[in-house]
Design a protein around this nucleic acid. Structure first.
Length: 425
RNA sequence: GGAGGGAUGGCAGAGUGGUCGAAUGCGGCGGUCUUGAAAACCGUUGAGGCGCAAGUCUCCGGGGGUUCGAAUCCCUCUCCCUCCGCCA
């Protein structure tokens, strides 16, 4: 949610940002400003009426205390109509506020000035390349290898749960565990505090990070207990500090968390979802920052650099893209995507997305920080994957496969895997 | 799942219909004293909305109700504690 003050002061800049993100209807801005104006007038009116009613009630109280009951009765007799007027005003007010917030919640975050304006994924800017995009024709896609070896069982996954819920068996199960451990250990060394969050959240939390009302179709719902299966650890971890006033001296807060992630991925099909490309359940280590507003873009670069060095440490070829306005989500003001090379598919696979949300999430969740002077300010939140497992596994299988069919284990994982080759794991 | 008890400011803890946004203690901040610190003493100390301001409104777990007036009474939900049941 954006600051209404900002809408009032710079409506055109907000509209421009919306258009750049590909939204067509900028009238939301005017509607929000108008409904806010109406709401504010109503607040003033109601407050004045309430002040009057409070004054009368106080008078009555004083008279009663002095035993002047008859005089009190005279005033009480006059309060009836004011009471009804108050009730009507109150009802009107809550309606007005809902309308106002309804508009406000549907206005996306505004892209940062450093974000390239664009319309399609081709407009994303490559900002970093590492390693060679292997093209040898003998390299097979990961699903062929994994199925041949019995390492990933998609069929039984379908039987037991459904498409997109594979079983990992033997070496790949172990590889995933090794990756999780490696990612968490590395994050700890880099100063992140590891937390294990709940894997389901309530409605308030889903609303806090913006899954509701914008993206509710992405989540699995547990209706009987009104829980949502988390689509990313971002949801519980960012909500960790919802409705809190933090101490500014504790910032920046840096958290790492491993969780499974559940996504319905309604509407996905074809080669996009082949193998490990897109699953309904996958594992991820997520990194979350809460920082003072003045330092969030430095923090974004720090996060980006960290994730890049993490991918590099696995010896994988990848690239970093600065996402253009159209390819950013609703809540981000700036976003980098990291994509590893899949030689078996000859395409790039997104494995991390590092974003600055500025105060967009923090305002909705009321996460603030108080400095030594006592002034309170919304924090800026950022997050990034460090990293998402399935596509990393796919890239390892495909990039580390040898002409003889053997799959080597990246150096940094060998101690966790207790071997240097998947075949012998 | 069943029975009972509870939820008040950063923390502890009073307050059971009327000058209560809320005693008191601790903590925090400022000061006096001190070479400095501690102790002692004095003062100060919640959040949010509207408003240029004066000011005003809202908030005592959440929501709803009774009343001229609610922290206080009623309903409901959530959470916590004790006991029983179940259980990795």
């Amino acid at each position: 949610m954006l600051d209404i003050q900002r809408l009032r002061e710079f409506p055109d800049a907000i509209k421009q940002g919306m258009l750049a993100k590909g939204e067509k209807d900028t009238s939301l801005v005017d509607k929000a400003i108008q409904s806010d104006e109406t709401w504010r007038h109503a607040v003033a009116e109601l407050d004045a009426k309430r002040a009057e009613a409070n004054k009368q009630a106080k008078e009555i109280g004083q008279l009663m205390a002095q035993g002047k009951k008859a005089e009190a009765e005279v005033i009480i007799a006059k309060t009836g109509e004011a009471k009804e007027a108050l009730k009507a005003l109150e009802e009107g007010l809550s309606e007005l506020k809902e309308t106002r917030n309804g508009y406000l919640l549907r206005i996306p975050n505004v892209p940062h000035e450093s974000v390239p304006v664009g319309k399609t994924p081709e407009d994303n800017q490559p900002v970093h390349h590492h390693g060679e995009a292997l093209t040898e024709s003998w390299r097979k896609p990961h699903w062929e290898i994994a199925e041949e070896q019995g390492w990933i069982d998609f069929k039984r996954g379908v039987k037991v749960t459904g498409a997109g819920f594979p079983f990992y068996v033997g070496p790949i199960a172990r590889l995933q565990r090794a990756l999780i451990q490696y990612f968490l250990d590395t994050a700890t060394d880099a100063g992140f505090t590891e937390i294990q969050p709940p894997f389901v959240v309530n409605e308030d939390s889903a609303r806090g990070t913006g899954q509701i009302p914008d993206k509710e179709d992405m989540m699995y719902v547990i209706p009987r207990d009104e829980f949502f299966a988390i689509p990313t650890a971002e949801v519980p971890v960012t909500n960790f500090h919802r409705d809190e006033v933090l101490s500014a001296s504790d910032l920046p807060l840096k958290y790492s968390a491993y969780t499974p992630c559940w996504r319905r991925e309604a509407g996905s099909y074809g080669k996009e979802v082949r193998g490990l490309n897109r699953l309904h359940q996958f594992d991820k280590v997520e990194l979350v920052y809460m920082v003072p507003a003045s330092t969030s873009y430095e923090a974004l670069e720090e996060l980006r650099t960290y994730v890049e060095s993490l991918i590099e440490s696995l010896g994988l070829s990848y690239r970093t893209l600065l996402m253009c306005t159209a390819d950013m989500g609703f809540t981000q003001s700036k976003k980098y995507d990291m994509e590893v090379w899949s030689p078996g598919q000859q395409r790039w696979l997104e494995v991390s997305s590092c974003s600055n949300f500025e105060d967009f999430q923090a305002r909705r969740m009321m996460i603030r920080a108080k400095d030594e002077q006592g002034s309170i300010e919304l924090v800026h939140t950022l997050n990034g994957s460090g990293l998402a497992l399935p596509r990393i596994v796919a890239a390892i299988i495909e990039q580390y496969q040898q002409p003889n069919g053997q799959i080597l284990v990246p150096d940094v994982l060998q101690s966790y895997m207790r071997t240097d080759s998947l075949d012998t794991a």
